[in-house]
Design a binder for these strands. Sequence first.
DNA 1: CTCTTAATTGCAACTTAGTCGCAAAAATTT
DNA 2: AAATTTTTGCGACTAAGTTGCAATTAAGAG
Lengths: 121, 121
Amino acid sequence: MKIEKLIEEKNLKLTSARRELLEIFFHSAKPLSFEDVRSRIKMDKATFYRNVSKFEEQAILGSFESNDKKRYYELNTLPHAHFVCKICNGVECIKEPFSMSLDGYVIEDIILKGVCKQCNK
Amino acid sequence: MKIEKLIEEKNLKLTSARRELLEIFFHSAKPLSFEDVRSRIKMDKATFYRNVSKFEEQAILGSFESNDKKRYYELNTLPHAHFVCKICNGVECIKEPFSMSLDGYVIEDIILKGVCKQCNK
DNA sequence: CTCTTAATTGCAACTTAGTCGCAAAAATTT
DNA sequence: AAATTTTTGCGACTAAGTTGCAATTAAGAG
């Protein structure tokens, strides 16, 4: 299965915490915070944060800080922008690819802030 | 002077804390966190946060959360993007105007994350 | 399969940005 | 100048995230 292979490739040990975490990220369409994960499975926050940091070091996950003082994590797939709603604090992935460049800078992520579709009605 | 006029217009009371705060924001080229302001003047954090919130309500200031868990504030001028460096955590304003739109969404701010000019050398 | 070793987990204590209640101080109204 | 209202500053508090440490678990060697 892909989780086992991924962990193997990165020379990490496969623990149940890691399997559960990756399982969740593989099945989520949005970036998730600790709270989001916590609402799905029981996991100590130290375990969560230590594992997601390790996954980030290994480029399995990426993350960004949202508007609500929480950090959101997701699988490192193709580069794409994120939208953060200032009303509901919801976080979404924007599928349409972005192109933006700036001399001398490396742009790795784009976060758009404003009002999402739902809250705009 | 413009600070007095601005405060007047927004029906706020002009206190020395507010004058000092606005003075700093008027002379800064970058968004500032409480720590940044604190390094320039002595001010209680409750006073800082209560005033910047009030200024935000009155659309005098705008703010965003950076990568370092700190919130950065700046005068509400023309819409422009911000760049946040993941190496030095520096925050900069991008002068070039952006144009990006997304059906059904209101985009109010754009934050680019990556590596800044300095750290890229 | 069992032993050994090294990594991981879970808990509690801690850190840090930001918030809140309240009494003292400063502004504005009368 | 007195009365009323708002703001300030302090300390206590909150919530996300980090760290130290003892107990547990994974994985390789025999």
